[in-house]
Design a binder for these strands. Structure first.
Length: 412
DNA sequence: CGTCGCACAGTATAGATACA
DNA sequence: TGTATCTATACTGTGCGACG
């Protein structure tokens, strides 16, 4: 019996007792600094070493446990999480004590940490800062500096209370369109059950469809925007101000095949849009929103409406199926049965498609050209759209673009 | 050069466990 | 019994060398 005390008397695994202060601290780390396992863990364990040790965690809390707590907060929208993340710039002064605590700990431990919102010029103009900020590495390459862009409050300025009060509208600026390149073409799937107005000539978001008053994203608060966005991403059932579109035509075709009834696929020219366009992925990232199992990649949300000028082509899925049946080369190219056999438009489907895909040659180009011609896509767009199809349908790269485009032209 | 297989790191999620 | 915390595990992306 006593020979295996470790087995007979299991020592309970020590756990941290998370309190509000610790949670806020962890939230500030995530909100204001680039995620770094080792650094976050060391800072936290140093600041809360006595509390953590009291819980039996002699070597401090593990990164995994700490990260689990972070995820819990995000997942269940803990009040601490909401406080720190939902009005980060308005409330930035509130977190000054925590931020300077982080700063001092970083310095004390000789670590390096990268602020999320830190333009270089702050250091240059920062007179009162005596000690060199050597441990604060400015993000050089992917400089997503928010300080100069869009009149946004600079992180360190706000922290050091050097920011003037007359900042125009800090809450709205982070919601503006991303600077990242917007794709030239977007693809939409819709059917008779889709909300809003979905004709071949015009799309109207569900919220604005019944002659209800229109409003622009600037008219509503940050929270309301996030709320609409989350509801839209969750369930399409509630009226939404957004219209979903995708960067790849595969995704709407896949959806259309699974929801056949009157499904329409439309190709949209983003240059002709007259309302705001948001990347779903950026929205998640910028507002620290999460939804289980979905990160928004590939999806773009159009605000309110898509005017007929922007709809360069609209085609019923049944037409596409018919084309695939009638023309073997189109059928072979599209592999509709494969698409229909996969429940999810994920890696599995892509691999499957790649196995049966053609090459970068005249034959593939011809099939695509013929398809695009048949669905009345204006010739001027054929180059871009055909290249999109090439990538989406996972064609092999053996061959040349020249022969491919030649084939596309021939198909018209 | 492009593709494949592998290893590795980081991340998301289910659910086990201890505790109130 | 329900909640808080965290582990175990599955998933995803990425880099790298081998290979044709």
């Amino acid at each position: 019996m006593e020979s295996f005390p470790g087995l007979n008397y299991r020592i309970p695994v020590p756990k941290n007792r998370w309190n509000r202060e610790q949670r806020l601290f962890l939230c500030c780390l995530h909100e204001f600094f680039k995620r770094d396992q080792v650094v976050f863990k060391d800072i936290f364990n140093h600041v809360f070493r006595s509390e953590v040790r009291e819980c039996g965690l002699i070597d401090g809390i593990s990164w995994n446990a700490m990260d689990a707590q972070w995820r819990e907060m995000v997942r269940y929208s803990y009040t601490e999480w909401r406080e720190v993340h939902q009005d980060s710039f308005d409330g930035i002064r509130r977190w000054r004590p925590i931020l300077s605590q982080i700063k001092h700990t970083v310095r004390h431990l000789g670590l390096q940490i990268i602020p999320k919102y830190s333009p270089e010029e702050v250091h240059a103009t920062d007179e009162e800062e005596q000690e060199p900020d050597s441990e604060i590495v400015s993000p050089t390459q992917n400089n997503t500096s928010l300080c100069n862009g869009g009149g946004k409050v600079c992180f360190w300025c706000a922290q050091e209370q050097t920011t003037s009060e007359e900042n125009p509208e800090p809450t709205n600026s982070s919601r503006t369109k991303s600077n990242d390149e917007v794709p030239r073409f977007l693809y939409r799937w819709s059917n008779i059950d889709s909300q809003g107005v979905n004709s071949k000539r015009l799309f109207l978001a569900g919220l604005f469809a019944d002659g209800r008053e229109q409003f622009s994203p600037e008219d509503i608060s940050q929270e309301q925007f996030s709320e609409y966005f989350l509801r839209h991403a969750h369930i399409e059932k509630t009226p939404s101000p957004f219209i979903s579109t995708f960067i790849s035509m595969l995704s709407p075709v896949h959806r259309a095949l699974w929801n056949k009834e009157g499904a329409i696929i439309s190709i949209i020219d983003t240059k002709k849009l007259d309302t705001a366009l948001y990347s779903a992925k950026d929205n998640f990232r910028k507002h620290n929103l999460r939804i289980r199992g979905y990160d928004g990649r590939g999806e773009y949300l159009v605000w309110g409406r898509i005017p007929s000028a922007a709809i360069i082509c609209a085609v019923k899925i049944s037409t596409i199926q018919q084309l695939a049946d009638e023309h073997t080369e189109i059928g072979k190219l599209l592999q509709l049965e494969k698409i229909a056999s996969h429940k999810f438009n994920r890696r599995k489907l892509h691999e499957d498609l790649a196995r049966g895909a053609g090459n970068l040659d005249r034959a593939s180009g011809f099939a695509i050209g013929k398809l695009l011609f048949s669905i009345d896509l204006p010739f001027e767009f054929s180059t871009d759209v055909s290249e999109g199809l090439f990538h989406s349908w996972r064609l092999k790269r053996t061959g040349s673009w020249e022969s491919f485009h030649e084939g596309v032209d021939a198909g018209y």
